[in-house]
Design a protein around this nucleic acid. Structure first.
Lengths: 353, 353
DNA sequence: ATGAAAGCGCTAACAC
DNA sequence: GTGTTAGCGCTTTCAT
């Protein structure tokens, strides 16, 4: 079943069928109707491969994520698909699972399928992996990183805005000993978050105890470990801001295990605002970095670039604001800072004082 | 950059280049080396659209899921991608977000891209939506449902096996009043789970109090609501099995809110074993329905079907076992069944007795 | 063992 | 306004 059958049944040339489908205005309404009728009857759908081949436009955008099973990404994938669908684009999603080999393979798959652009939403990456894409002038969009090159867009995240709100929110609740659990400091984005936190603290004249700066790894386990470190130091914090929500969940979990009540004894703030943040107990106060918005910005960056005849030589930049979402994991600082746990082990520390 | 450039540089015909790439054995090793060398140098990647067009095989499988943002699905998507990559298949994932319109659109997108097969992993669906696919003889694989038609495979889930283990596990812990929170009973899969539960209870001679059978909706909110109902009845259960993990999380959350300790006062069992089940507090005992295995079975069903010349007239069936995973949300039944909450409202019921 | 050529289904000149 | 035709990049006969 091809355009030819439609043409034959409608008694027109294949060119007319093509024009009808593509809405070329020269086609007589009468003919157009006839053609559409046949198309419906036959249940004809154009072959996109043939279209792509002849037009040189695949109408596919690639989306590379770190790992689809990380709760941060599905919302982005969904958002990306939603907009793609509206624009008659298909989306080729690949998950690199933090494996450089898979990443390289992703790029290869993208090229083989002749995607028109690629959105790269990953934690950390080797830029060299994208050389094949760059040399082919495939529009690219990155988060936070990306050289000022033509056909390369960057979505900058304004970490400071949300983190400043978080810090000031805690300060308003009389917290002074505010800890920060970072992500892996090899990651630029993790570093940027930590810097933003430091700056926000500095702005309101709050000192950061070096012991209150601990490195996590953006996982729940990392949060648990970080929490253990934090509560082993002399001066225990009354609030902790985490570099991402999974870390915050880990901190909350460990707090629960240690019988430390959140938020009464410890305020916890996350970052990202993954869906799950609403559902944990207590619902997590966090800095929202809208995944839907990232998807939208990334898609539009690509679309804009594809349509552009002469790409700007310096690439394009987009900005995403972050902002605090208040939920129930933060509260007024306790009057007297909690001291280190008594050494005597309790058989049941969980939840009961 | 096309096969022609490679041919020219290697001083062979395009046919030879094609044969080399496709590993046709007639090509002289010497020529083959020459061609491969040029391919490397040029960074040439074959155009899959052209390949698909001429060969009639797109090397794409479709994967339709209910919603990628539901924690149940990402693991399936990842598993599917992993196997697809190994087999040089591309995967076109679409998320229907429970919208029949989006579902219809999904099917359309699949047809337009000429996928070679489609795996449908959704909660409930209108079979009619797949008529277009069926009439085109596109291999299909469904979970649990699916008519015995050629080119249609079904993955049957053995709910009973895991649920029987769950029930017997609880019985061994001296539980007798075991409640069940079902999914929406309009869903065949939800119904099947409930039936399996009933049967498992029946097998060991345990009666199910009708008040202990409440309908949820496979969301956390549904679990919360169900839990409230369950603890408003005269005879309060000591254990509750949930039709899926999200429901179980809701039940646990509401237990926490009501100050009911899990597992000391209430044992909770989930179903699915989503990744998150390991991370909640306490880690959830649940019936595992391996998402990776579903992905594997579905992909292989499709691959098998694609390769088959004469499809079996009755379709194929695959079976997936479920089995209990023990974690910390189940424990010995309390000696004396907890009674209904005292009417006097407590300002702080959470966690403290 | 290799090359020439037909053709997959479509779009876009170009004619009329 | 509509039809004819030349490819798009590849695979696959069919010759040689």
């Amino acid at each position: 079943m091809s355009i030819h059958e439609v043409a034959k049944m409608a008694k027109v040339s294949i060119a007319t069928v093509s024009r009808t489908i593509n809405g070329v205005p020269t086609v007589t309404p009468q003919l157009s109707r006839r053609v559409w009728k046949v198309i419906e009857e036959l249940g004809y759908y154009p072959n996109t491969q043939a279209r792509a081949l002849v037009s040189g436009r695949s109408r596919i955008f690639g989306l590379i994520v770190s790992e689809i099973t990380n709760p941060f990404f599905p919302e982005i994938v969904q958002g990306f698909e939603d907009i793609a669908v509206q624009n008659n684009y298909e989306i080729l999603t690949t998950s690199t699972v933090h494996d450089p080999g898979r990443m390289a393979l992703s790029v290869r798959r993208m090229i083989e399928r002749r995607v028109e652009g690629v959105a790269v939403v990953t934690f950390g990456m080797e830029e060299a992996l994208f050389d094949d894409l760059k040399s082919r002038n495939v529009p690219l969009v990155f988060i936070d990183v990306g050289p000022p090159l033509p056909r390369i867009s960057t979505i900058k995240i304004d970490y400071l805005h949300g983190l400043r709100q978080a810090v000031q929110h805690l300060a308003a609740l009389r917290h002074e000993k505010i800890a920060f659990v970072s992500g892996p400091l090899t990651l630029k984005t993790a570093l940027a978050r930590q810097h933003a936190f430091m700056q926000a603290m500095d702005e309101i004249g709050l000192a950061v105890d070096p012991q209150h700066l601990v490195e996590g790894n953006h996982t729940m386990e990392g949060g648990i470990a970080a929490m253990q470190k934090l509560f082993a130091v002399a001066e225990i914090p009354t609030a902790v801001i985490c570099s991402n929500d999974m870390t915050a969940l880990g901190v909350m979990r460990e707090s629960y295990a240690q019988g430390i009540h959140v938020p009464k004894e410890l305020s916890v703030v996350g970052f990202d605002d993954i869906r799950l943040a609403q559902f944990v107990i207590p619902p997590l106060t966090t800095v929202k970095m809208s995944q839907a918005e990232i998807a939208r910005l990334a898609f539009n960056a690509l679309l804009t670039d594809v349509r552009r005849k002469n790409p700007s030589p310096t690439g394009s930049e987009y900005m995403l604001r972050t902002s605090l979402v208040l939920r129930d994991s933060t509260a007024l600082a306790p009057k007297t800072a909690r001291r280190k746990k008594p050494k005597a082990p309790e058989s049941d520390a969980a939840g009961n004082k």
